[in-house]
Design a protein around this nucleic acid. Sequence first.
DNA 1: TCTGGGGTCCTAGGACCC
DNA 2: TCTGGGGTCCTAGGACCC
Length: 451
Amino acid sequence: MRGDPSVLHVDLDAFFAAVEQRDKPSLRGKPVVVGGIGVRGVVSTASYEARKYGVRSAMSTAEARSRCPHAAYLSPRFEVYRQSSRAVMAEMRALSPLVEPLSLDEAFIDLAASGLRGLTVDDVEAIARDLKESIRKVSGGLTASVGAGTSKLIAKIASDLDKPDGVVVVPAGTEADFLAPMQVTVIPGVGPATAQRLSMAGVRTVADLQQLDEDELVRQIGSAHGTSLHRLAVAADDRPVVSDRETKSVSVEDTFETDIIDRSLLVAIADRMSLRVSERLRKAQLSGRTVTVKTRMHDFTTHTRSSTLAGPTDDSRVIARVARRLLEESEVGGGIRLLGVGVSSLADWIQDDLFTDDEHAENPIEVVELPARPRDQVGFHPGQDVAHPDHGRGWVWGSGRGRVTVRFETADTPPGPVRTFAIDDPALTKVRISGVDADEEPGTDQNVSNE
DNA sequence: TCTGGGGTCCTAGGACCC
DNA sequence: TCTGGGGTCCTAGGACCC
């Protein structure tokens, strides 16, 4: 354990909402809620003005609306948040080369890695205030809260104590006493289920936890969790700050406004998800061997099915074909509220031409507009790709009674808006996307281990 | 007014191998 | 011919985080 409080945890205050208030002056000083705005939406971030009404992260947007009807409800603009996040992280890296981002709005900084030694509480406070000032400058006025201590655990907990816009430095040597009076749930990793188990053993505060025998703790909550929690309770935390953590999985999922029973629609959605997963793998220069399909039923029970290939792939057609097979094996029952496709067992190298298709690798998605002949307008089926001059590219969600419903994709909110057209609307043209076409049999079966 | 989307890590059982 | 023990891989599910 280090002797000075040289681990910093930086947390941007109400990040998504703060960015929206920064960019739209009319929202400043007013309640702002960023998250899913549909019927099954959930709050990502509430501004401090909205929190006064009891609006919280992870709350359903419906509940947020009933608590604070006059707030502004906004869909997240991830690309904008990513830009600000990059600028803020760059300021942190100017302070120390060892920065570990935890999400867009949070990171650890190890000051020892920049050669600073024997830092006093005053030194660290001054560094933290300078950092907050430079963050404010590069981000157009965003505030951050900073915690500092001799370990990640202490820094993380400290950053939460004086939000927003605060600085809390915990002196070396005072860590166990600092933690003792707090609820066990302040320790990251102790959620509702663990708290419930601990409570049955009479443990509510960290002080209670400090008294508990390690063997007893392991019996209550399992070996890995018990051992680490026993150490964290007495502030024995030597986890290093690690930059460049490797990605372990890439996935896409979507909760539908209403449950879906139609298997052909589910297949069309799974194909698109496979395409998006493939695009993200390629962008990150990754490939993976295990494809997982996730389904959430109407009653919220969640199932996963996975299949591991003989070698890694980033090919949308291979991913889609495995996803389809896994989906076929999945129960649809009374309807599915969520579908997801993911790839894991990642390698940072890509299986070469032995198994993948050259032409496809170079042209992962190609959009070809077909001429709009009247007879092309009939026979829209779920998943059929279409284009519209005013709305861009989209795909058929459903059709019937002379109308066709199209879902348009936008860069920031992938499920995109849904619009309905007359089935003979000449502006709506059919489009073909190569890549995951149901009728193309790619014939790379040797890639699938258990076929 | 029911519960997002992107992840990480852990557990447990079965297959399979030595 | 009644029965081992360890290691690794795969699958499924669950807890947790932001």
